[in-house]
């Protein structure tokens, strides 16, 4: 019998083996989830869309034929052709390149917002649900105020108050999304709180903070991931809307919503200007939504397999 297990760090392969041993169950669950997802057509479709978008965003500098902000007035508003797949805008910039770079911005917004709102919302919800009583009332009523406004309207108001910039738009959208996560996690935390392992942890001397972070939040994570996927889509939509009305990304940043905003002036004669960014928003949002839906079905233990 080994008297002590090998320390990770001293030997990289040993560390990896140890990681595999320690997480064998998670690894098996992960592959089982993958297997279930592969049998689910909408999951596959959503996954393919998300992956292509991520690929295009990452590979934009190599795939894009032109610099997205290079102005070429002689080619302004030219229709789609082999030279300019999606045509050009009123300054002669290549729309295909701009749309590809736009994917970087939109995906970054989506991830940042979900990261910020998901993190804060999860903690707030877990504390509210676990502590209960007055704390719960105060946290949830504050979040209800946020929730009582349509998210787009509130995000607009906030972004306008903070001043138009991409960073402020991200903060505004993140703020609006916090209650979605908090409500979900609070509901789950209410159930987790009553489980006997929480009582056992209290008797063993664990603090409330410890219990929230080691018992409550880990047990809520799978639903947070599902909601996160769905929120990415919604976020991209809201962020584009903010840019559309000039509250998000500022020129010359190639953001999809901002491109549509300018392009709509040319919609009658130059249909391609607003259409292609719009199509990319549509496809990306649909991709995240159907993948999120499928993920929820697959991760829900009651309807799993």
């Amino acid at each position: 019998m080994p008297s002590s297990t090998p320390r990770s760090g001293t030997d990289p392969t040993g560390g990896w083996r140890r990681f595999r041993e320690e997480h064998a169950w998670q690894i098996r669950e992960f592959f089982f989830t993958l297997h279930l997802l592969r049998r689910n057509p909408s999951a596959v479709a959503g996954f393919v869309i998300i992956c292509s978008m991520v690929f295009l965003a990452l590979a934009a500098p190599w795939v894009a034929p032109y610099d997205p902000i290079r102005i070429s007035l002689s080619e302004r508003l030219s229709p789609p052709s082999w030279h300019h797949l999606f045509g050009t805008d009123e300054l002669g910039r290549d729309l295909f390149s701009r749309v590809l770079y736009g994917a970087r911005i939109s995906l970054r917004i989506g991830l940042l917002v979900v990261g910020i709102a998901g993190g804060l919302g999860t903690i707030l919800g877990a504390v509210a649900g676990y502590v209960g009583g007055k704390t719960d009332d105060v946290i949830m009523r504050c979040l209800d105020i946020v929730l009582s406004f349509p998210s787009l309207v509130l995000a607009m108001a906030l972004a306008a108050a903070l001043g138009p910039s991409l960073r402020n738009a991200i903060l505004a959208v993140a703020f609006v999304m916090i209650p979605k996560f908090a409500r979900l996690v609070r509901g789950e935390a209410l159930a987790v709180r009553e489980r006997p392992f929480i009582a056992a942890a209290k008797v063993s001397g664990a603090s409330h903070t410890w219990i929230v972070f080691h018992h409550v939040i880990p047990n809520c994570l799978s639903s947070v991931i599902v909601l996160g996927t769905l929120v990415v889509g919604e976020t991209i939509l809201i962020a584009s809307s903010l840019s559309f009305i000039g509250l998000g990304a500022q020129p010359p940043t190639p953001e999809w919503g901002a491109m549509i905003s300018v392009g709509r002036k040319f919609l009658m004669d130059q249909w391609w200007y607003a259409t292609f960014p719009g199509l990319f928003i549509l496809v990306t949002v649909i991709g995240f939504n159907i993948f999120g839906d499928a993920l929820r079905d697959v991760l829900d233990p009651r309807i799993r397999r």
Partner: peptide, 21 residues
């Protein structure tokens, strides 16, 4: 079953009282 957190490794489920104390 319900006295053990389904998402906690046995090592942590048994060892955490040492750490938190």
């Amino acid at each position: 079953q319900s006295s053990l957190d389904p998402r906690m490794l046995v090592k942590k489920a048994v060892g955490f009282p040492l750490e938190v104390n």
